[in-house]
Design a protein around this nucleic acid. Structure first.
Ligand SMILES: [Mn+2]
Ligand SMILES: [Mn+2]
Ligand SMILES: [Mn+2]
Ligand SMILES: [Mn+2]
Lengths: 250, 250
DNA sequence: TTCTTAAGTTAGTCTAGCCTAACTATAACG
DNA sequence: CGTTATAGTTAGGCTAGACTAACTTAAGAA
């Protein structure tokens, strides 16, 4: 009851449909670097004119850059938003499979329906629940109160996941390079931002599909050092924020 | 991705909006016996002409009986459907509060958004998760695998909830009288079905707002014996199915 | 360089779901 | 029994989001 408007996510109120378009664009770009109308149409199972219409609406909201006949670019706001939706999707999927034990192949559609109604607080706790249960495995016993206190202060009586300086939820499959922790590996998906920034990063070797490993990060993640193409490369945080990566859990 | 149609729930495909109308009608009837346009309008925070339109749509689908200027009745199909939505709502709410520990007052809207995207399998497991954790309380430890095997065969190593002959999930706040287990108490909410059936049940004392307790049920719940207005009353299952009750956890 | 074809856009239609404004029915009251 | 207030309906408008049909663009093949 009380059919009100959804949660305030950064002052932007997107419909389920617009969120799905944004999510699709993001996922296609992570896979393919570029997202074209046909790709989106195929991914979402709608006709191309529907995509054109959605792109106009998203462009009006400042979330994508859309020039007729060109491949669609995400703005910084659009990218942040899209990443958020994709994270909600994976968080829900992982909850359904790893906590509720539902079969992988059945949960995709359901996750994509639920993701639009997940509040920021619920997302946070869902991520933590999945990680908490993942860390405990199938064997180790725990109390609900253990989880509740882990929620509050990050403490865990069994010590498997307490107070990591750098912590990325296991459910997250793609994010900014600047979010990664030392030891993590990944694949450069695409580089965002304005031309000069993109150019500079590409010249440093941050081209799509290249694999890398994070070597170390300074206290506030600035700079971040990675191993890429056999070289060690040091990036400023402001640069690493423009590099969208797919996390690889070997 | 893949914006397809929702789950097949008894061959009926209701929009989120239509589900909310049905849920509101059900909840109002559980509280008030009758649901009028104004009540629905207030409950859902929409204007009255929107309600009139929704009622016409629901009547076309055979879920409500709608005669201009009269209070709205649920058909048997509509009642079943509505009860299902209300159960999804409460299951989600209880999960959010008792497992994720979110504050009661924050979760209503979110539950009402999520309920529309919950599959039957997920509902089932969510109900069981809440019950399982409820039965274990905050203190007793358990493994995820305990829950998983409880899901499969209803067995629980700690024995608190194994193999109850009669089992009603704790999250369910209102249902048919025929679903209740011996020892449970409740309040008659309303009686459904055609006039002669309703009349017969009312003559037996099954009038709205009357409190009762279930004394015992025969193996397949037929007949069911209750204590009501100081008398013991025995009902056939087919009759008890028409009595919608609010469960009272004293 | 022209032809062909796939990708993309435009225009127009339809449905769901909300709204306001204006009209109508019902019931309660004097 | 007529008046009046409230509940309810009808008519009409608007937006979002899908669709088809028809046209346009751009890129590769001949
Ligand atoms: Mn979705
Ligand atoms: Mn999704
Ligand atoms: Mn709802
Ligand atoms: Mn609800």
């Amino acid at each position: 009851m009380q059919r009100g408007r959804p949660f305030n996510r950064q002052d932007m109120n997107l419909s389920h449909s617009m969120e799905d378009y944004l999510e699709a664009i993001y996922n296609i770009k992570v896979r393919n670097q570029v997202a074209r109308v046909k790709d989106i149409s195929r991914e979402m199972n709608v006709r191309m004119p529907s995509v054109t219409g959605a792109l106009k609406a998203l462009a009006d909201k400042g979330l994508v850059i859309y020039q007729p006949y060109e491949s669609v670019e995400l703005t910084q706001a659009g990218l942040d938003h899209a990443r958020g939706i994709a994270h909600r999707h994976t968080a829900v999927r992982e909850f359904l499979t790893s906590v509720l034990g539902l079969p992988e192949e059945d949960v995709e559609q359901e996750a994509c329906g639920l993701e639009h109604a997940i509040s920021p607080e619920t997302l946070d706790r869902l991520l933590k629940l999945v990680d908490f249960i993942g860390a405990h495995g199938d064997d180790k016993a725990f109390r609900l109160s253990d989880f509740q206190s882990f929620l509050k202060d990050g403490s865990d009586p069994d010590g498997d996941m307490s107070a990591d300086v750098c912590y990325l939820p296991a459910t997250i499959k793609s994010t900014r390079l600047s979010e990664l922790c030392p030891g993590m590996k990944g694949r450069i998906a695409f580089v965002s931002g304005r031309k000069p920034i993109r150019k500079r990063l590409v010249e440093m070797g941050m081209t799509s599909d290249t694999h890398f490993e994070v070597l170390r990060t300074a206290p506030f993640g600035d700079p971040i050092e990675i191993k890429i193409r056999g070289y060690n490369l040091s990036l400023r945080r402001s640069e690493a924020e423009h590099v969208e990566v797919e996390v690889i859990n070997d």
